[in-house]
Design a protein around this nucleic acid. Structure first.
Length: 640
RNA sequence: GCCGAUGUAGCUCAGACGGUAGAGCAGCUGAUUCGUAAUCAGCAGGUCAGCGGUUCGAUCCCGCUCAUCGGCUCCA
């Protein structure tokens, strides 16, 4: 006879669960009125259990709150169960697979002969609301593997059967979750009952490989999102809408920065004047900063003989992603990376330890044959320019070089207005190179991070095949993460190209090579910048910093003169002298997110001044041209 | 590459059981000369993504291709 225990649910409601056999995991919160953490008074068998250990049957019940990440994740995961039930209720013949919570919501993967449509999603949502309204308890039951197996075999749930069969042999029992007759294989934990499900929305259907393996069958994945409260859901949907408005593909067209044209080819960016100017501003900044930090600027050719790519190992490891061509019946590879010419520069003479470190910097344009399905605006393209550098140094210099790069990244992120996170990726499965080299390189990277007192996460086995790496992920205004800077340690290429330097001892030694980028691909970085600033770039980056706006035609002569004076003063300025009302021209400049609008009317013509209006709507009153130029320069120097 | 959806004017989108298409904004022309987010009027604008098939006739139905969008896989 199972002992039964009474649990207090949020809102004071009582629920009874059997200890051991049936245990509901408790989610507190979820009640709109409760903002503070809610404590559930419940113990099961008196055993406290870590919720991360979800196979433990004697679960209990630490207070969880839907406003904490764990609580929200449990809520969403429970929603995915309810969705699965709703789908199976509405569409007979659907097989379920798995349905976890994810960063912004949840999903569940289904196999079904028909394709789910947006109308189907509404139907499923409706059924979910019914299940939620019925306030059905989630009940946990432990059964033997065999029992579970026969249950799901009988139901024809082949994916569940596969999951059970693939459990490690020492697992003797599995847990089931049931809601009023509906049973699913799951580790839990879940909310106590479906009544806590209030705020959710199904968002989209997409294909997804079973178990994430492209050799497997593709299932239909339904994505949804959910929150403890309607307000939180509304806020999330608002952020999604905001992200849509900031989409760099949309703003790129509206601000006339670039185009992606299918006549030109997929993944090939055509930069319009303003976009090209923005890029140029960034590139000029890069050159200046690299020279300041002791880098040498170099330039290599776009194509190199195929033999060279064979020697570097790219032909073996990267051929699928390379473009090839032929010149005078000789095969050539179009560069997907910039390292090779840098190696040849190093090899062009005998190097002494006194020459090291050598830092070769190239704004290198590369071509990579990315699969058609992965192309995305400026974020994933087939031709792009990296702010690439290769540093050749002695093993002893590794630490200080890596630290300097990390500092450079931090400086750059500050200048462009981003926060960032750091990840260290270690040796992958099929890597090349000796254990000793990997050890040295990994220690060097990790040591430099520690010496710089940086916090970082470790991604085991996520490094490049030739060496470990540090990745920097920047965070934009909407908290989305983007890969930008990376530092990769490489012993292989110096080996393959037989690079050496003459040491203090007069002997030949092998240098180490660091591959690194700071902003990464300029294309992607511009895309991220556009979305981060929603197109309203800081003054120093704005392709057009000011627009001269005349009130009527008779003010054009002074307007022209102002524009000329500003151009001479180094300001990126345009004139809008069209026969339109002032309000119309202000609106247009505003939509274009131009930092300054200089209104020229009777007053300004008489006093030979300008009246700047900032894009935030503030008017600065009438000031002299010289003062305005000084103002702009000062802001630009401070990267404002 | 895979699953699904989509492709109509520069942009956002209507539309016709198969009989070669519209609206707003943008553009152009004219009027207007105006003080900080949209002045009025007129005009022009389209191989309905491309190629092939079915049909008396295809932008619409079918097939292929290309591209885009949402994901998956990939990003050494």
């Amino acid at each position: 006879m199972a002992e039964r225990i009474q649990i207090t649910l949020p809102g004071g409601k009582k629920a009874e669960h059997a200890v051991g056999a049936v245990v509901g995991d408790i989610l507190a919160g979820g009640d709109e009125k409760r903002k503070s953490r809610f404590t559930v008074a419940a113990k099961v068998n008196g055993v406290p259990v870590d919720l991360s250990h979800r196979l433990n049957a004697d679960a209990v019940v630490e207070p969880i709150d839907a406003e904490t990440p764990e609580g929200l994740s449990i809520l969403r995961h429970s929603m995915s169960h309810v969705m699965a039930q709703a789908v199976q209720d509405s569409f007979p013949g659907v097989q379920v697979s798995i349905g976890p919570s994810i960063e912004d919501g949840f999903y569940y993967d289904f196999e079904y002969a028909e394709t789910f449509t947006p109308q189907d999603l509404e139907k499923i949502e409706e059924r979910m609301r019914q299940i939620a309204a019925a306030d059905i308890p989630f009940e946990r039951r432990e059964v033997s593997r065999e029992e579970a197996l026969s249950l799901f075999q009988k139901k024809g749930e082949n994916y569940k059967v596969e999951l059970i069969n693939d459990l490690p042999s020492e697992v003797k029992a599995v847990s089931l979750y049931a809601e009023d007759g509906y049973v699913d294989l799951c580790r839990g934990p879940h909310i106590p009952s479906t009544g806590m499900i209030r705020a959710f929305k199904l968002l989209s259907v997409a294909g997804a490989y079973w178990r994430g393996d492209e050799r497997n069958k593709m299932l239909q994945r339904i994505y949804g999102t959910g929150f403890a409260t309607q307000e939180a859901l509304d806020e999330h949907l608002r952020i999604l809408e905001e992200a849509r408005k900031r989409d760099h593909r949309r703003l790129g067209r509206e601000l006339d920065l670039f185009q992606l044209n299918d006549e030109a080819g997929a993944g090939l960016v055509i930069w319009h004047p303003k976009g090209a100017l923005l890029r140029t501003i960034i590139e000029d900044w890069e050159r200046k900063e690299h020279l300041r930090r002791g880098y040498d600027i170099v330039i290599g050719p776009q194509i190199l003989k195929a033999d060279l790519w064979k020697r570097s190992g790219h032909f073996d490891h990267y051929r699928e992603n390379m473009y090839f061509t032929e010149v005078d019946e000789q095969p050539y590879g179009i560069k997907p990376m910039n390292c090779l010419s840098h190696m040849l520069i190093y090899k062009s003479k005998i190097r002494s330890y006194r020459d090291l470190p050598l830092r070769y910097f190239e704004l290198g344009t590369v071509h990579r044959h990315e699969k058609a399905g992965v192309l995305h605006g400026l974020m994933r393209v087939r031709q792009f320019t990296q702010d690439d550098a290769h540093i050749l140094c002695t093993p002893e210099q590794l630490n200080s070089e890596i630290r300097a790069i990390a500092d450079f990244v931090g400086y750059a992120m500050g200048i462009f207005g981003f926060e960032y996170e750091v990840e260290l990726s270690t040796r992958p499965e099929n890597s090349i190179g000796s254990d000793q080299d990997w050890e040295l390189a990994t220690r060097a990277l990790e040591g430099a991070l520690k010496d710089n007192r940086m916090t970082y996460e470790v991604n085991e086995g996520d490094g490049a095949f030739y060496g470990p790496k540090i990745d920097f992920k920047l965070k934009d205004a909407l908290k989305r993460k983007w890969q930008c800077a990376t530092i990769q340690c490489d012993f292989t290429l110096p080996e393959r190209f037989d690079l050496h330097y003459v040491g203090e001892d007069g002997e030949r030694h092998r240098p180490v090579m660091l591959h690194r980028v700071i902003l990464g691909a300029i294309e992607r970085f511009v895309g991220v910048l556009i979305e981060h600033y929603a197109g309203a770039f800081p003054l120093w980056l704005s392709p057009v910093q000011a627009v001269v706006v005349t009130v009527t035609d008779k003010h054009i002569p002074w307007g022209e003169e102002v524009r000329k004076l500003l151009l001479e003063g180094g300001i990126r300025v345009e004139g809008d002298f069209r026969n339109e009302k002032l309000g119309y021209k202000i609106r247009e400049a505003q939509v274009q997110k131009t930092p300054y609008m200089l209104v020229i009317g009777d007053r300004e013509a008489a006093s030979r001044q300008v009246s700047p209006r900032r894009r935030d709507g503030r008017n600065l009153g009438s000031i002299d041209i010289g003062s305005f130029i000084g103002l702009v320069r000062e802001q630009c120097e401070g990267f404002k």
